[in-house]
Design a protein around this nucleic acid. Structure first.
Lengths: 235, 235
DNA sequence: CAAATCTATTTGTACGACAATATAGTTTTA
DNA sequence: TAAAACTATATTGTCGTACAAATAGATTTG
C-alpha cells in the first residue's frame, strides 16, 4: 500500500498539462487558449474541471481570462517563478544549466544571510534543533542518513532566522535543488567531509555571532559551488 | 470611466474572504471548513464558484481538500508566504511591526546581492535602462516623479541581474513594501538626497565591479533602515 | 478479536442553462 | 466623412442538479 497511490484528480492533471505547455514554451505569452468549451472537448474533461484548473493557473500568474476575449498566456514577468509547480515545470521542460544556476545563486544569497539572522534572533529551542541535526549528521552511518540530517540542519538554521518569508523562499529553492541532488556537495568517498564546517555555523549561531555565522555558511556554500564546477554540473 | 471598475467576480470575492479569514487567524491551521454545500449556502454562492475559489486557496497552500474528510486549513509552513495575495491578507489583517521587519529584512538581503550580480551579468541594454532611470531621478521635479523613477531604477537593477527567480521575489517584496510607502527613505525636505548613492550603484554596475555595486546598494539600504528607525516605523 | 464488509458523508466530475461582459461590426447622427 | 451610439455575438461567469469516487466509521463476520 503505497502512501500516495491515489490517482491524480482530473483538474490536477489538466493543471499539469497546461502548465507544462506554457512554461515549456509550446504556448507562448500572448497566445490565446482555445475557448473553454473547445479546450474541454480536446482534453476530454468537463468544463467544470477545466475551469478549476484554469483558476489555479491564473493564481500562479500564468494565464488571464477575460470575457469575450478568452484566456491568454501572460508575460513571463507575471509568472510566479517561485511557485513550486512552476519551478517543477521548468525542471521538466527546460532543465538547463542557466536555470540551475539561478537556483544555486538564490541559495547562495539566502543561506549566509539566514545564518547571520539566526545568530541574532534564534531562541534556545531553535538552537537545540540545530544542535540535534548536527548530532545526527555526526552520527550518520551512510549517505542517506547524512543527507537527511543535512537537510534538517539547513532547514533548522533557516527556521531559527525567524522570518517566515525567508523560510518559505528557502523551502521552495531547496526542494527544487533537491530534485537535482545539488544541495549538498557530496564528496564521493568521505561524505562527512563538511561536518567541521557545519560545526562552525552551529557554533557561531550558538555564540550569537552574526558575522561568523555568515562567513561560515558562505564558505560552505562556496565549497558546494566549487564541487559543482568540478563535476561539471548535470544538465 | 475608471480603468478597473469591473465588479469583482464572485469566486474572487470568495477567495478574498476565506483568504483573510485564514491568514488573519479566524480559521486556524487544522480547522475544518464547512462542507462545500454548507459553505456555499452560508456565502450565498453556487458550489461551482466556491469550488473554484477553494482550488485557488489550495494553490496558495492555505487549504487542503480530501474526500469524505472535507477541507482543512494547512499549517503555516505550507502557506505560500511569498504569494502576493497572502502578503496582502497579512497586511490587511496583521500589519504588525514584526511583519514589516520581515519584508524589510528580505529587501536588505536581495538588493545588495542583486546589484552585485547585475554588475557581473548585465548587458548593454540593461545598463542603459538603469541609466535612463537614473536620469529620470536626477530630473524629477516632485516627489511623485522621484518615487516613480526610483522604483524603475531598482527594478532595472534587479532585471539586470538576469535571474528571473530574483526578479520575481523582489517584485513581490517591493510591491508589498510599496503598500506602506516604506521602499525609499524619503527625507522630508530634500527628496533627492539619495541621488549620489544611486549614482554609485549605477557606476559600479557600469564598471562591472560587483563588490562596489554590493557595497553601494548596501549603504543605500542601510540608510533606508536608519531613516525608518528615526521615524519610528508605522504600524 | 481481527478482518472483511457495509454505509454514509464529502469531494470530484459532468452536463445544461442562462447571465454578464466586452469585442467587433453596424447604424445613426453631427 | 467622422464620430457616436447601437447591436449582434462570442466567451467567460454563475447557478443548479445529478451522479461517480473515495474514505472514515460502523457493522458484520470468521
Amino acid at each position: 500500500m503505497p502512501p500516495d497511490a491515489s490517482q491524480p484528480k482530473v483538474h490536477r492533471q489538466v493543471v499539469d498539462q497546461l502548465g507544462r505547455l506554457i512554461v515549456g514554451g509550446s504556448l507562448a505569452p500572448g497566445d490565446a487558449l482555445p475557448s473553454e468549451e473547445l479546450l474541454a472537448g480536446q482534453l476530454v474533461v468537463s468544463r467544470s474541471a477545466l475551469r478549476e484548473a484554469m483558476k489555479v493557473l491564473g493564481a500562479k500568474g500564468l494565464i488571464e481570462s477575460r470575457q469575450k476575449t478568452g484566456a491568454r498566456v501572460r508575460e513571463r514577468r507575471f509568472w510566479h517563478q517561485l511557485d513550486a509547480d512552476v519551478l517543477g515545470w521548468r525542471f521538466a521542460t527546460m532543465p538547463t544549466q542557466a536555470f540551475i544556476a539561478e537556483l544555486v545563486e538564490m541559495r547562495e544569497i539566502i543561506e549566509p544571510a539566514a545564518a547571520a539572522a539566526a545568530a541574532q534572533k534564534r531562541d534556545r529551542a531553535q538552537l537545540a534543533t540545530i544542535a540535534a541535526a548536527y548530532q545526527a549528521m555526526a552520527q550518520a552511518g551512510d549517505r542517506d542518513e547524512w543527507a537527511k540530517a543535512d537537510a534538517e540542519f539547513h532547514s533548522a538554521v533557516l527556521n531559527a532566522a525567524n522570518n517566515e518569508l525567508m523560510s518559505s523562499l528557502f523551502n521552495v529553492i531547496a526542494t527544487a535543488l533537491h530534485g537535482f541532488f545539488l544541495l549538498s556537495a557530496r564528496a564521493s568517498d568521505d561524505f562527512k567531509y563538511s561536518l567541521p564546517q557545519h560545526f562552525k555555523v552551529y557554533d557561531a549561531i550558538r555564540k550569537r555571532s552574526a558575522p561568523r555565522a555568515r562567513m561560515a555558511m558562505q564558505k560552505m556554500v562556496d565549497d558546494s559551488r566549487r564541487h559543482l564546477q568540478h563535476t561539471g554540473g548535470i544538465a
